[in-house]
Nucleic acid binder design. Sequence first.
DNA 1: CGACCATTTGATATGGATCAAGCGATGTGG
DNA 2: CCACATCGCTTGATCCATATCAAATGGTCG
Lengths: 229, 229
Amino acid sequence: MLTETAFQSDSGRLFDRRIPHESPVGPHALSGAIELMGASMSFKRNAEIYGEQEPTDYFYKVVRGAVRTYKVLMDGRRQIGAFYLPGEIFGLETGDEHVISAEAIVDTKILIVKRNVAISLATRDSTIARQLWTLTGCELQRTQHHLLLLGKSAAERVASFLLEMAERSQSGDEIRLPMSRQDIGDYLGLTIETVSRVLTRFEKDAAIALPTCKRVVLCDRSVLERLLD
Amino acid sequence: MLTETAFQSDSGRLFDRRIPHESPVGPHALSGAIELMGASMSFKRNAEIYGEQEPTDYFYKVVRGAVRTYKVLMDGRRQIGAFYLPGEIFGLETGDEHVISAEAIVDTKILIVKRNVAISLATRDSTIARQLWTLTGCELQRTQHHLLLLGKSAAERVASFLLEMAERSQSGDEIRLPMSRQDIGDYLGLTIETVSRVLTRFEKDAAIALPTCKRVVLCDRSVLERLLD
DNA sequence: CGACCATTTGATATGGATCAAGCGATGTGG
DNA sequence: CCACATCGCTTGATCCATATCAAATGGTCG
């Protein structure tokens, strides 16, 4: 993985000039750094981006497509940790080795920056350091939210998933899901059958429409929102 | 909460001299900063340390006792996010407001440092910044591990909990659990009845002994370990 | 068109929740 | 020091949401 690195890591100073200070919650400077310094890579559907126990050499930003992080357990079950959509950053682990794998869900274009370049930037620029911290904090919050989700009923989990995807894909009421039912099930801790049944139920309740199995239209968000906290 | 602040936040420079650089995985400088600068506070059993939506004004380190973080959901269920034992740091959120509450499980002594003092230290000293990031990354990893746990069977969850508590309390094979069965259940996403039944089962299998309900002796760790990944 | 894979739908099984009762430890007042 | 109340824990019986097993349907690509 990641051998074709045509890297322009010497543009750090340029970056310092062009990226303004940001609010603590919008870690755009790091994101901007990746835009400016990042090498572009493409991954085919289901290709591995990094594997568990590989060194954490890079940070990643999705340009096009979608990514899943996951762990396969002893018994063969797979838990998906997160989905990443265009514009989102992933791979931000603090240890030396990845503890979770990442794959492209569909054909995907990604920008990568060398981790030690970003970290050495952070050493010189406390704004970058702050944003590295903030971004990891956001990831922590996302994981905590995901953890809470696993305590809820199947309907609540699927509703929460749909509303979150609608939010993040910023495409109004029509969502295009890049991932399979198996992916959704493995993210929500449900079987594909249960995911499918809940979606059918939502459709019958006129909360959603399913023009195709990968496209969801939110017809009545309030039905879904009523299930959440 | 937290009104009796006899704070010595002016010892930052002292700290800079005395805390050496640390490895990325051992964020001891921040911990040391809390030791040196922290104000001591005591909380009675079940007392709130901070509540959801309160401003994130402090970082915390447990000296004596034990702490739980938790969220109460719409339906009245409570999910415990983590337990913190003596020596451990908590309250490290990046947002302006806590998204999760914290309570003392038993009578507990805690050191606190003002968040903005630690952050301004981090601005000047990249070692502190790095450790703030690393510590948040450890918390993220812990949460991911907790998330995986919720996908497993009741026996796996309880076994994992016992082994982790044994590890963290560093008291060999004899664990003293500060928390109730309800706390354990709310951490593992199980009812108290299920927790109790699993413990009884482990006792019958000679994996553990229960001299009292708060004390657990690990007699045969391999029985428990066999359940894990 | 036909083969293949993903999704949906249906029938049954099961792990843990729920409901209910008993037990044991801790503390309090007589 | 004991009687008794209280609270947390354990044990037992039943129920239910979701898993599992199985079959039908639909969508995609050669």
